[in-house]
Structures are given as C-alpha cells and as structure tokens.
Amino acid sequence: MSVVSPSLDRKIYVRSVGHVIVYDPRDGKCEKTEIPKEPYSRDVCVVDNVLYIYCIGVGLMWYNSKEKEWRVVNGISTLLWFPNFRLKVALAEYNGNLAVLQQLSLKKSETIVWCVMIALERNGEEITGKVAWFERLLSITDDYKIMHCLARTDS
C-alpha cells in the first residue's frame, strides 16, 4: 500500500498495486479504481480536491471522481519527465500547486534531484498544467532514494 492516504470528498484514497482503493468512512464501503497500465509513482497527491499521480510514459494524471476515470493533465510535455532515465518521483501540494521531486539516476554513481513546480488550472472536465518553476536541487549518491514527499506550511 501507499505511504500516503489522502482524503478527497470525505473519502480516503490508498494507492495499491495497479489500483487505488477508495474508502468511505460514512458508510463503511470500499471501491477500487484501476490505475493505467503504465509504471507509476509511489505517491498520490491531492491539490484543490483533485487526486494526482505520475505515470512513466504518460506523464501527470488526475482522477475524475465523478466519472471514476484517470485523465492526462494537459499542457505538460512528457519530455519534462526524462523518459530515458531511471526515474523516481514524489508529489506534494504546495500553496495550491503541485511540487514534483524527480530523482534521476544518470549513472551508477550519480543521481540528481530536481524540483518542478506545476500550476494547475481546471476548465470544465479538463485540467491544464503549466511549469511555474523548476530547478536542479542537489546531487546525491545512488545509495539514497526519494521515498515520499511531505508538504509543510508556514504559519
């Protein structure tokens, strides 16, 4: 199961192998929704009451809870996701944006961590993302890996 269990519409969402389990504590019911058959990130993230996941080869996806289907976030190039490298991705909400931490293993001994901040806009039944900011954060050895991304707010 996922490390993160975000809540959305008063339901709890848990990522499992190949699907997301949706638990409604009000009536005690569980349902399951399939994730696209692409490799996907360990994290799921909620921004403005929408659930997001990253799929390798597809890119950033969002869950339409009314239609119970996954859709691609428009406007984000899949080239942004470095598809030819070994990639680990963690997601977190940050001030209404989606923070994406990418760990890229370029060689056996060199790993780079990037952060991409994505501004999201909903227009009817579509969501468009725009890269607001991105930067290489640091280099680390291959002994380390991103497990999960936690958001922190300043008070």
Rank of each mutant, 00 (worst) to 15 (best):
D154P: 00
Y54V: 04
C115K: 11
W133D: 11
L98R: 03
I140N: 00
N49K: 07
S105M: 14
I76M: 06
V17R: 15
I53N: 02
P83F: 12
T33C: 14
V113S: 00
Q103D: 05
K88I: 14
V14A: 09
L51T: 04
W70R: 03
N84L: 12
A119K: 15
M147R: 04
V44K: 03
V113M: 10
V3M: 11
W70M: 05
L120M: 12
Q103R: 07
I21K: 06
I127R: 05
R10Y: 14
T111V: 14
D43M: 03
S155F: 09
R10Q: 14
V100M: 11
D143E: 09
S105E: 15
L87C: 07
K88C: 13
R71G: 07
R42S: 08
T153P: 04
N64W: 06
E93F: 11
K108W: 08
L120F: 13
D27V: 05
N74T: 00
G57K: 10
E125F: 12
V47F: 03
Y144P: 03
G129Q: 03
A92S: 14
L150A: 09
E38A: 11
N49A: 10
A119P: 04
W70T: 02
D27W: 08
N64A: 06
L137G: 01
K66Y: 12
L101Y: 15
G129N: 04
I118E: 01
R122A: 14
I118C: 00
L150Q: 08
V50L: 03
R10L: 12
W133M: 09
D154C: 06
C30M: 12
R136S: 10
E34G: 07
Y54D: 00
S5N: 14
A90R: 06
V72R: 07
A99V: 08
R26H: 13
G59V: 05
G57S: 06
T33G: 03
C149Y: 02
Y52M: 04
N95E: 15
R26I: 06
R10D: 15
E93I: 10
I112L: 06
T78S: 12
P6H: 05
F82H: 10
I127H: 02
L138C: 10
R86T: 08
S109V: 13
I12S: 02
V3L: 13
W70V: 09
V4T: 13
C149F: 01
T33D: 09
V72K: 15
L150G: 02
H19D: 09
E69P: 00
A151E: 08
K68C: 06
K29D: 09
T128V: 10
S109C: 08
L138I: 09
S2M: 02
I76T: 03
L91A: 06
A90G: 14
K37E: 10
V14R: 07
